[in-house]
């Protein structure tokens, strides 16, 4: 089945890749345009980026986003690792049910998750803020982290652990010195996935963030409501490009480790 691909198929694929990446390239291109309204091709400017970096609302929002995303990564990878162990290594009554429930946050429409959490927080009288956003983000991050870590766990050679035990290591030492290091790439991959998901989440955050606790996507959204502008383009470019650079960097690092 080797050889040249049918021309029609190739054209279709090129169109689809252009469709997938074109809009982002347009966004990036127009973040450098000097015209305030509409779209112009003349000139090149960095002034919108300058405006982004000197806008206090944006910097505050970035701060809130990081204050949510970083704890979220730590909590959900820790719980995810533990959960992966429980699911993969032990057999217990209701394991299937537990796994099913674990998938619910992934399957649930984001909107429903946001709305039901809003109802819960209102019902118990918890005021909306960074805390409620963090609770919400950890909820959808735990299943994500667990899935990624289980994926890695399935590839671990069990004989390495058995060898450690045969050589006299107790269960705790084996886990700490053998299993966890082997699992590390999976845990890192989970963190690399959870961070942008938390950082970029809009829909769920939209419902559970209070007045003073706008994350970056919420801030972007309220700017978009005012209309298309080169400043939003610049901010949008940064939001898309910076995490991607981190992810690509992280992946290259991981590749070098293995």
């Amino acid at each position: 089945m080797k050889g040249k691909s049918p021309p029609l198929l190739r054209v279709l694929c090129i169109i689809l890749f252009a469709f997938m990446y074109g809009p982002l390239l347009v966004l990036i291109a127009f973040s450098f345009t000097p015209t305030e309204y509409g779209i112009g091709w003349e000139g090149f400017t960095l002034k919108w980026y300058q405006e982004v970096f000197t806008n206090n609302n944006i910097l505050n929002a970035l701060n809130v986003s990081l204050m949510v995303a970083i704890p979220c990564v730590l909590i959900s990878t820790a719980i995810g690792t533990l959960t992966a162990f429980i699911i993969y290594r032990s057999r217990f009554f209701g394991r299937g049910l537990f796994q099913g429930i674990l998938y619910i946050p992934l399957i649930m429409p984001d909107l429903v998750m946001g709305v039901t959490l809003l109802l819960l927080f209102t019902f118990i009288g918890l005021s909306l803020g960074i805390m409620t956003i963090l609770f919400a983000h950890v909820s959808f991050s735990i299943p994500l982290a667990t899935l990624v870590i289980i994926g890695r766990m399935q590839r671990i050679d069990r004989r390495l652990e058995e060898a450690a035990m045969d050589l006299g290591a107790d269960e705790w030492t084996t886990m700490r010195k053998v299993t966890l290091p082997l699992l590390m790439p999976g845990i890192l991959a989970a963190a690399l996935l959870v961070f942008p998901w938390s950082f970029n989440d809009f829909v769920i955050t939209y419902f559970v963030s209070g007045v003073g606790s706008s994350t970056l996507p919420i801030r972007v959204y309220s700017m978009i409501r005012l209309g298309v502008s080169p400043m939003v383009n610049a901010l949008g470019t940064l939001i898309v490009v910076v995490p991607l650079i981190l992810v690509v960097f992280g992946m290259l690092m991981e590749k070098r480790r293995v």
């Binding site: 809009p23 982002l24 347009v26 966004l27 127009f30 309204y37 509409g38 779209i39 996935l193 942008p196 970029n200 809009f202 996507p217 972007v220 959204y221 978009i224 298309v228 939003v232 383009n233 949008g236 939001i239 898309v240 995490p243 991607l244 992810v247």
Partner: peptide
């Protein structure tokens, strides 16, 4: 890994009245 909000917004740049 990218923001869904920003990606949808990029279509506004293309399709809006003063868009691409």
């Amino acid at each position: 890994w990218t923001s869904p909000l920003v990606r949808v917004y990029s279509w506004m740049i293309i399709l809006s009245d003063h868009g691409l």
